[in-house]
Design a protein around this nucleic acid. Sequence first.
DNA 1: ATTGCTATTAGTACCTAGTCATAAATTTTG
DNA 2: CAAAATTTATGACTAGGTACTAATAGCAAT
Lengths: 189, 189
Amino acid sequence: MKLSKKERQKRLKQTISETPFITDEELADKFGVSIQTIRLDRLELAIPEVRERIKNVAVQHFDKVKSLPIEEVIGEIIDLKLDESAISILEFKREHVFSRTKIARGHHLFAQANSLAVAVIDDELALTAKATIRFTRQVKEGERVVAKAKVLKKSKMRTIVEVKSYVNQELVFSGEFVMFRKEHVHQEG
Amino acid sequence: MKLSKKERQKRLKQTISETPFITDEELADKFGVSIQTIRLDRLELAIPEVRERIKNVAVQHFDKVKSLPIEEVIGEIIDLKLDESAISILEFKREHVFSRTKIARGHHLFAQANSLAVAVIDDELALTAKATIRFTRQVKEGERVVAKAKVLKKSKMRTIVEVKSYVNQELVFSGEFVMFRKEHVHQEG
DNA sequence: ATTGCTATTAGTACCTAGTCATAAATTTTG
DNA sequence: CAAAATTTATGACTAGGTACTAATAGCAAT
C-alpha cells in the first residue's frame, strides 16, 4: 500500500528525528520511492542532508560538554531577594524520575531546594550544614515544581532557610536548612 | 621554521583531538605542508577522516542520551545485604563541586546517601518520606566518598535507614532516612 | 659526487552522499 | 480527456575523502 505525499512526509520527519543518521538511499528504500522523491521531500520540509544532521548532533554534544558546569543552580530562579526569599521552578523530566514508576527521585527535589537555599544567601560562599526534610507528596514526570525559600533566622554564624516546594499549590516537599557562611565554612561542611 | 615529522604528528594528534571537525585541507594549511602529507600522517596514526570523526562524536552523544537513566543508583554499590546494610562509593569530580571553591555540593552527598537508602530496602518500591541530615566536613574535588547504610528499624509501614559517609575514615555526612514501602507510597511521597 | 634512504609532493581514478537544474513519465483530479 | 500534481530519470557538479603510483627533495655516508 502506497502512502500519500502528506503522510509520507509526516513519517519521514518522524523517522529522521528518531534516527538522524539515515541516508536518502535508506529512506527511499524504506518508503518504497525513488531517491529523488526523498530529496524533494527534504527540500520541502527544509531537512538538511545526513552529513549536516550528523554534524549538528556532534556540535550540540561538543557545546554541552564545554558548558557542563553551568547548572550551578538546579532549576530556574524566577525571583530572588538576597537574605530574604527566593523562588525557583524545575520541570521534572524523564531523567528525574524512577524509570519504572515515573515518580520523582527524592534527591532531585532536595537538589532544587538545597541549591535555592544556597542561592538566597547573600555571601560569597554558603554551605549546608544540616537539613531536615519531608517529602509530602509524590511528584510525577511532567510536573513543574515551584520551590519557595524563606530566610527564617540570620546570625553571623548561620542562617536558617525554610524551603517549601509545590505542584499547583500542593505541598510536595518541605525542608529546613541550616547554612554556614564563608568564614565558618572552614570548620564545618 | 619547519617541524620534524615526529613533532608535526604529535601536534596533529593534539589538534585533532581538540578540534575534531577540522578538515585535511585546513590542517595542511595550519602546518604548512601538503594535503598528502597530512593524509599520510593520519594513515600512520590511524586517525579517521573528518566525517568519521564527526560521526563518532555524534554517536557517543546519541548513546549517552539513550543510556542516561542508567544511573538509577548514584555511586557504585560494592556491598548489599537487603534490609540490613549497604555500601557505595562515589568519586567526586568536577561536575559534583562548586566551580569556584571545588567543594562538593551538598545535594550530591545527599543523592548518594538517599539512593543507597532506597537500594537497601528489599521491596519493589521505596520512597523517602523524611530525612534529617548533617554535613560534618567538606568534601573536595577528587575525594572518594564511602557511604554506609544501616537499617535501624523496620515495620510494615516504614523503614528507618541511617547513612554515614566517609572520606578515609572521616565522617563527612550523616543522615537518618524514613522510607515508605510500596503500599504506603500511594498516600505519601 | 654519487648512492641510498626517508620524507614530501603530485597526480589519477574512484567513492559517498549529496546539490541543482532540466526533462520525462506517471498519477491524480477537475 | 486534458491539466495539474507528483514522481522518476538524467547529467553536471561538489566536498572530503581513499588508494595507489610516480616523481622529487633533503640529507648522510661512503
